[in-house]
Design a protein around this nucleic acid. Structure first.
Length: 463
RNA sequence: UCCCCGGUAGCUCAAUGGUAGAGUGGGUGGCUGUUAACCACUAGGCUGUAGGUUCGAAUCCUACCCGGGGAGCCA
């Protein structure tokens, strides 16, 4: 007999038929009326399936009564209309097979409340909770929707390298990749001689696939990457991970406006899909995690994202009458408090801030004609702050070279990146979206460590 | 990395200088088409680690470890 998933069983299409379901016991309630109730969950959906187990079953005394939360079982029975409230269908068991028992004295994830902090310490088991089941299903849909969105628009999915042998990505601290014996490093003139290392030079984990992405965009038109990204920054916040997933589209023949338009469409596409396809999980988040999350997502979907320049943002902040810890002076980067004011108080919707001062932005960003700003954009959303960072890329070789040198870097390692400007250069743009930050935004989960299965953060890489 | 807060029963927390408590989960008994089930009884703790102050420390002090919130860096 073929197993049916609980999501299918609950749909009721097999009513009055014999079904086989398998899953993990969430709770068991015994009735002295001569039977027990078991709530079974198999991960296929948020809801549990109620199983009615008659005391007449052969293994009732010896096995069924020993089923505690976490136990794994298979149930053969008839899917019937439920006599009780709370659920429309249930299974009247004819046969219960136990795969594995679960000792309630030792097993932490029982019926009692367990904090997210504690669950992080037992991350190998937290997938069995309501919250992490819901987060995982939503995260999965967001990944699928990401591919759908870009594929529908003719973007090619490419895989950029995870190991990068050029330390020129310039987006913060990197993790070193090496096969050298740390206790006996080869030295040359007092410094480590990386010519003996695996790649014959220093190597790191990628902090962005953008530069490689540009190479393919300027051949295939539109591409996107969706892969792991590593930052060795000692960041200890609810919005940072040392290992996270990033989506980076790159478009040839596209300027900053096209970029912003794509970002807005993409975000709305993801929200729409989650609202439509994860309604049970989203109702859970709205009830137990963030009581405004559904309202917020609907609101974001219906509103046009506010677009303002950095210069306008500074003016608005200065005129707001709001007291900030950090001054808002043209030329300084916007602080978290400024960003949150703009998106949460001033406009109450996502805000795309564009054209930042060139001094505070990366070398590869397109320099504007004013000589002061670059064609950069940050997409800010309520609660999370910056969720997307992007720009039109500098496509003029002279200007690119000047910027590289201004920042005290040498041109040589960028030879291949510069070639893109030498041979058939085109205007092009792209952005990076932090996947976990988006999962946070959509679910209302407070801590980014709870929207990725096994978080890596400073001093923490268990599992 | 900086600032602030915390670490007490399996879990969630109380007890702020005087014999360490509740809820919940577990066990036992009762009751019931139950659904965070309910009622009664019961077991369960060198109070993160190492020092110090004190007649006496979960409580005060110092250091360290771990966790959380905020900031910086960013996605």
């Amino acid at each position: 007999m073929k197993r049916v998933y609980i999501v299918k069983a609950l749909s009721g299409t097999d009513i009055d038929k014999e079904v086989l379901v398998k899953g993990w016991v969430r709770t068991r309630r015994d009735s002295k009326g001569g039977f027990s109730f078991i709530e079974l969950n198999d991960g296929s959906c948020f809801r549990n399936l109620q199983i009615i187990i008659d005391a007449d079953l052969d293994n009732y005394q010896n096995e069924v009564l020993k089923l505690f939360p976490g136990s794994s079982i298979a149930v053969k029975g008839t899917l019937v209309k439920s006599q009780g409230g709370g659920q429309s269908v249930e299974v009247k068991a004819n046969e219960v097979k136990v795969y594995g028992y679960c000792d309630p004295e030792e097993y932490v994830i029982g019926k009692q409340r367990v904090s997210f902090e504690r669950l992080r310490e037992i991350a190998h088991l937290r997938a069995r909770t309501n919250t992490f089941g819901a987060v995982t299903r939503v995260r999965n849909k967001l990944a699928k929707a990401t591919h759908d969105f870009f594929q529908e628009r003719g973007f090619f999915y490419i895989n950029t390298p995870i190991i990068t042998a050029s330390d020129c990505e310039g987006a913060g601290e990197m993790f070193r990749v090496s096969t050298l014996d740390l206790s006996a490093l080869p030295k040359s003139e007092g410094r480590v001689d990386f010519s003996h290392d695996f790649f014959g030079k220093e190597a790191f984990l990628t902090v962005s696939g953008q530069l490689e992405g540009e190479c393919y965009a300027t051949g295939l038109g539109n591409i996107y990457t969706f892969g792991p990204t590593f930052r060795a920054e000692n960041s200890n916040t609810s919005r940072h991970l040392a290992e996270f997933w990033m989506i980076e589209p790159e478009m040839a023949f596209a300027d900053l406006d096209d970029d912003a338009e794509l970002a807005e469409e993409y975000i709305k596409y993801l929200i729409t899909l989650v609202l439509n396809e994860c309604s049970e999980d989203m109702e859970f988040f709205n009830k137990h995690i963030d009581k405004t999350i559904l309202e917020t997502l609907h609101h974001v979907n219906e509103s046009e994202f506010m677009r303002i320049s950095y210069t306008e943002a500074i003016e608005i902040l200065n005129k707001s009458g709001q007291q900030f810890e950090y001054d808002t002076i043209w030329g300084r980067d916007l602080q978290t408090e400024h960003e949150r004011f703009l998106t949460e108080k001033e406009f109450k919707r996502p805000v795309i801030v564009t054209h930042y001062p060139r001094e505070i932005k990366a070398f590869y960003m397109k320099q504007n004609d004013d000589g002061k700003t670059v064609a950069a954009m940050d997409v800010l959303v309520p609660k999370i702050g910056e969720i997307i960072g992007g720009s039109q890329r500098e496509d003029d070789l002279q200007k690119l070279d000047a910027r590289i040198q201004e920042q005290g870097m040498s041109l040589a390692p960028y030879w291949w990146y510069r070639d893109l400007r030498k041979f058939g250069s085109v205007p092009h743009s792209g952005f990076g979206l932090g996947f976990e930050r988006f999962v946070q935004f959509v679910t209302g989960m407070d801590n980014i460590r709870d929207v990725i299965p096994f978080p890596r953060t400073p001093k923490s890489a268990e599992f």
